[in-house]
Design a protein around this nucleic acid. Structure first.
Lengths: 129, 129
DNA sequence: CGCCTAATTGACAATGATTCTCATTTCCGT
DNA sequence: ACGGAAATGAGAATCATTGTCAATTAGGCG
């Protein structure tokens, strides 16, 4: 599993910086326009390429909104974790639940499933909204 | 919350029948072509409308594939449950995990989130694949 | 049993996110 | 500085999904 070699470019640095500046999950389109507004415009295709690459290396977490749009977030934790996402402001809290991991493993095994992976996100309205 | 009144039409019955005939999660496009192949062709827009209506009434479960496509399934259980989905054949097993529900409620409350809802799916390779 | 009207349908256009193409630009080791 | 490989960007292409609107149809009513 060799990490893809990536050159250091202004564009990729800008995308990463914009992600770090966001506390919520943002879409590629949102990032693209934020970057443009900041005067550090990056082509839309490049934003997509960069996000895809980052996601492939687990540098960012990806999830899908109800309408199927992909949204990305740079998380503090490198480890496996889940999210509590505010459906109003988009703010996300990273949470982990060993009990859930165990349950998932147990259930998968009981049904003979291999190479399991799971997705779990909790959506709600946060106390500030 | 009054249930929308729906007329009984050949098209809606056909979509329901096709869903019942499928053990896996299927996309609107797949349903549309299966119906066409069976000679019971239903317009694509109608397939979408019907699925959306069924989903709104919790008659079918919806989830998103990794590439963002919506897939639907008629589940045996009316109650809240989750899925163990085979990433090869698409077969799905309905599972429930009270421990997970509790955990989600606890975590949400701890962070002051209201009106929470969660999504949890486990993807793996089943023993037949 | 036919009629009437509103709900439903379907072909097609329109939208919107994402990916592809390819000519141009930019890294970076030499 | 140079050269080739990698990255970029503008726009076209793709694909799922939704909107439009005229034609069809279900179902209550006389």
């Amino acid at each position: 599993m060799t990490e893809a070699v990536r050159r250091q470019t202004r564009q990729q640095a800008a995308v990463l910086a914009a992600l770090d500046a966001a506390a919520e999950f943002v879409s590629a389109q949102q990032l693209h326009s934020r970057l443009r507004d900041q005067g550090a415009s990056v082509g839309l295709a490049t934003v997509y390429r960069t996000l895809t690459a980052l996601a492939a290396q687990d540098e960012v977490d990806v999830l899908r909104t109800d309408d199927g749009e992909a949204v990305y977030r740079r998380c503090a934790s490198d480890e496996h974790h889940h999210h509590l996402v505010c459906r109003v402001c988009g703010r996300a809290v990273e949470v982990d639940g060993p009990a859930v991991e165990d349950w998932a493993a147990r259930v998968s095994a009981a049904h003979g499933f291999r190479d399991v992976r799971h997705t779990l996100e909790i959506f709600g309205t946060c106390d500030r909204c």
